[in-house]
Design a protein around this nucleic acid. Structure first.
Length: 431
RNA sequence: CGGGGCGUGGCGCAGCCUGGUAGCGCGCCUGGUUUGGGUCCAGGAGGCCGGAGGUUCGAAUCCUCUCGCCCCGACCA
């Protein structure tokens, strides 16, 4: 992508409404723009990151054997009356009336919708367990939206729903999701701790929040310091270790009952990037969702639901990956892998070398953003640091005189000088 | 919803108290200049001051209402 033709409205000054660093950087880097309170446009650069995050989550879920579908944003009120949540969910739920005075709601979650699908199409225990998921925009009419996409009213969410024949099987599925989530968050470059949590309006009796440690987090969590050294490799053994380690949301923590010795107990702030629930027959009972068991008798299905705040993950990534100059994207979620800076547009040699590098990387399928704008060097360096691409390739007359270009690692700030051939060697040898 | 703050060119702000129909920085456009960390110079475009009503000879400035946004709290994935 050539920056001269890209849509990248970066800001030099910080819009006054933004307090949180991720909110500021997303606005300044031209990733998002506010539409109204708690509702945001995702501009090209931001959308690329959102889609990268989505892709990593999708792969993790598909690898775990779950199946993606897509449900509508709008749902009929009747479905929610059937589960009893039409009244219970309260003002957070956006209610709409269509031209025929039919009552609709903009989905804040989709337990009713998915349960309706399952009861219509799944008839036998042989078809279970089943885990279905989607990526879809949700709307929850927060009393006070804040912090940009961290706590927006409209947000992009991955929501998964599981269906099993009994509690034992359902808890196994619950464990499979925990494993998939640990893998996903690791792949996203986030350290997430699963903490025991209250179940809230989703309901049920088993629930974990996945918390990313960050000073600016809105949640208070208490956990065994051993979590800090815990690296998830997957498998039954690690899952059992996770289940044993103490980690609690503040409303679940009781210092009198906490088994962790004081010197090992950590109390920190976290960003809740995921929340999972096991709720048994909470929806299958009122919605009469049964399958036939081995004896040919109808049994209620046992369910759980599992969310990841995709748009919030983007903000969480910035909260944990930035410095005073801007964002420092982990490579796997970066909007582009490489930023190419032509320090002197108009200089024959610089133009030629940049054009060659740009084409070579593009042909190799490496995502590269080429700053070919006739701006001063300071502007280019600042822009590139701000948007935080992992590697900067800096080309100018001074270096070219020695046959050299510069490669800067945005995360480590490490700079090396090398030839163009070395550059290809380093980035394209395996491609 | 309770408490607080703010709405003035794209962004950040001053002007408002002590009414006389708008100013600064950045950005944008043009020309020149500069070229390894938001370069410098000159010229230029762009706002009727969130909206409505009122007071007044006259309102961005005063009054009333209203809409929007932000912060704290309660609440929440």
């Amino acid at each position: 992508m050539k920056m001269s033709h890209y849509f990248l409205p970066t800001l030099k000054e910080v819009p006054s409404e933004a307090q949180l660093v991720s909110h500021r950087l997303m606005l300044r880097a031209g990733m998002i723009a506010q539409e109204c309170a708690g509702i945001y446009h995702w501009l090209p650069l931001g959308l690329r990151v959102l889609q990268k995050v989505e892709g990593i989550i999708r792969k993790g879920l598909d690898d775990a054997g779950f199946h993606e579908l897509l449900m509508p944003t709008l749902q009929p009120a009747e479905l929610w009356e059937e589960s009893g949540r039409y009244e219970a969910y309260g003002k957070e739920m956006l209610r709409i009336t269509d031209r025929h005075d039919r009552r609709l709601i903009y989905g804040p979650t989709a337990e009713e919708a998915i349960t309706d699908i399952v009861r219509r199409f799944i008839k036998s225990y042989r078809e279970l367990p089943q885990v279905l998921y989607q990526f879809q925009w949700k709307f929850r009419d927060e009393i006070r939206p804040r912090f940009g996409v961290m706590r927006g009213r409209e947000f992009y969410m991955k929501d998964a729903y599981s269906f099993d024949i009994d509690r034992e099987s359902a808890e196994k599925t619950y464990g499979r999701v925990i494993q998939a989530y640990m893998e996903i968050f690791k792949n996203l470059g986030l350290k997430a701790i699963p903490v025991r949590a209250d179940t809230g309006p989703i309901g049920g009796d088993l629930s974990h929040e996945f918390q990313v440690l960050a000073e600016t987090g809105e949640s208070d969590i208490y956990y065994d310091g051993d979590f800090d050294d815990f690296t998830f490799r997957g498998g039954e053994e690690d899952l059992n270790r996770i289940k044993k380690l103490y980690a609690m949301a503040d409303d679940m923590h009781d210092s009198a009952l906490c088994p962790v010795p004081e010197d090992r107990l950590k109390h920190k702030k976290g960003i809740e990037v995921g929340h999972i629930f096991y709720f048994g027959t909470k929806y299958s009972l009122p919605m009469k969702t049964t399958v036939t068991n081995e004896q040919g008798k109808p049994i209620l299905v046992e369910s759980g639901s599992y969310g990841i705040g995709v748009s919030r993950v983007v903000a969480a990534l910035i909260e944990t990956n930035h410095d005073e100059f801007g964002i420092k994207w982990p490579e796997q979620v970066a909007p582009f892998k490489i930023g190419l800076i032509n320090l002197k547009v108009g200089d024959d040699q610089s133009d030629r070398v940049c054009a060659e590098i740009y084409e070579r990387f593009r042909n190799a399928g490496v995502e590269i953003l080429y700053d070919d704008r006739p701006e001063s060097v300071g502007v280019k360096f600042s822009t590139m640091d701000l948007i935080g691409l992992p590697y900067q390739i800096i080309v100018g007359p001074r270096g070219l005189k020695e046959g050299q270009i510069e490669v800067k690692d945005r995360r480590s700030s490490e700079k090396i000088l090398c030839s163009v051939e070395d550059l290809y060697q380093r980035f394209l040898s395996h491609a």
